[in-house]
Computed example of a mutant assay.
Amino acid sequence: MTRYFSRVVAVAASAAFALGLAACATGSTPSASPAGTTSTTPSASASVDVKQLTVTPGKLTIATGKPAYSPWVEDDKPESGKGFEAAVAYAVAEKLGFTKDEVVWKRTTFDEAVTPGPKAWDFNLQQFSITDERKKAVDFSSSYYTTSQAVLTYKGSKIAAAASLAELKAAKLGATIGTTSLSALNKVIAPTEAAKVFNNNDDAVLALKNKQIEGLVVDLPTALYLSAAVIDNGTIIGQLADNTGGDQFGLVLQKGSKLTAPVTAAVDALKADNTLATLEKTWLSESISVPVLQ
C-alpha cells in the first residue's frame, strides 16, 4: 500500500465510520480481559521491573494520533479502551502489569512518532507499518496486526450483494501491480476473467469510480477510507481470510528502549493466547460489518 493511503486511512476512513476494552488489573486470580476474554497469564514483566523503566515510573504512557479515528479508537477517546488499537494498548498494559488507572495517554502526529530522538511516551500506536527504514530511527515491537485484503465495489454493481468467494469468480476485478492485493486476488479469489492490473492506486480507484471494473482488491484500512471518502456509494463486500504478505503494524518505541523486549513479549503473549485475534474480530470485522469471505 502506498504511503498516501497508509496515512489517509487513519485520518479519513475511520472518521466516516463513527462506530461504536478496558483491561483489568493483573493479579493472582483470573481477571477480565478485553472483549470478554479471560487471562491468567503472568505479567510479561516477571523478570524485569518494567514499572521502573517507563518515562514516568509507575505509569505507562501510551501515545496515539490526534485525533484518533474509528475503528482504531472509538469517539477519539483511547482511554475508553474501545476500538482495536485502544483495546490492544490496554491488553499490552495488562500483560506488563499495569492497571487501567496506571495508563496515561498522549497525542502525537504520525511523522513525529517515527523520527529519531527522545520520546515523551513509552510506546505509540497509530497503524505504523514495520519497515527497515523506520527501524533506523525507532524500535518496533513484534506485529500486533497484519493487514488483510478486502474487496471494494459500489452500490448497484453486479457483485454488491456477493457473500462468498464463489460469487466473485466471474466478476471484473482489479488491483495494483506488484501488490499483495493483486497476489491475493489471483490466489484466493482466482477469477475466471483475468484481473485488471493497474500501474498505481490512483488508476485503480479511477477505474472503479468509472465502473470499468466491478470490484477492487485493496488492504482493509484502505478499503475503509475509499468507501467512506472517495468512492460514491462505495461498499466493502468483505475481507479475505488469507493475509499472507500484508503490512504488519507494530508498536513504536524510542530507539534502544529498554521496554522494547518486554513490550514485544507482551504482544507475543497476546498473540499466543488469541487475545489479538479476538480483538481483531471484534473491532475490524464484526463492528464494521466486514465479514470474512469464504
Rank of each mutant, 00 (worst) to 15 (best):
S142A: 08
E133W: 01
I130C: 04
T147G: 05
E133T: 07
R107K: 11
F140M: 02
E102A: 07
W105L: 08
E112A: 07
G97D: 09
I130D: 01
Y90Q: 11
A150D: 03
A93N: 06
S129W: 02
T146E: 04
A87N: 09
T99K: 11
E133Q: 04
G117T: 07
T115V: 13
V92Q: 05
T146I: 12
K155T: 15
Q149D: 14
A120V: 14
A137P: 03
K158N: 15
Q126C: 10
T131M: 01
Q149W: 12
A150R: 03
D101N: 13
V92C: 09
V151H: 10
A93D: 05
V88Q: 06
F128S: 01
A89W: 04
A86N: 01
A89I: 08
V103N: 13
V151L: 14
V92D: 06
T147L: 05
F84C: 11
E94K: 11
A93P: 04
T131N: 01
G97V: 10
V88S: 07
V151A: 12
S157H: 15
Q127W: 05
I159F: 12
A86R: 01
P116H: 04
T108R: 07
G156F: 14
Y154M: 15
W121K: 11
F128M: 02
A120H: 09
Q149M: 14
V104L: 07
K155M: 15
E85I: 11
S143G: 06
D101K: 14
E102L: 04
F98T: 07
S157D: 13
D101H: 10
K135W: 00
T115M: 10
D122S: 03
R134G: 01
A137E: 02
T146G: 08
Q149L: 14
D139E: 02
T108V: 10
K100N: 10
D122L: 03
Q127S: 08
Q127F: 06
A87V: 14
V88P: 03
F140A: 02
A93Q: 04
W105K: 11
A137C: 07
N124L: 07
E94H: 09
F123T: 07
E102V: 03
Y145A: 12
A89C: 09
R107S: 11
K135M: 00
A137G: 08
F84L: 13
D132G: 03
K119I: 06
T115F: 07
V114T: 04
V138M: 00
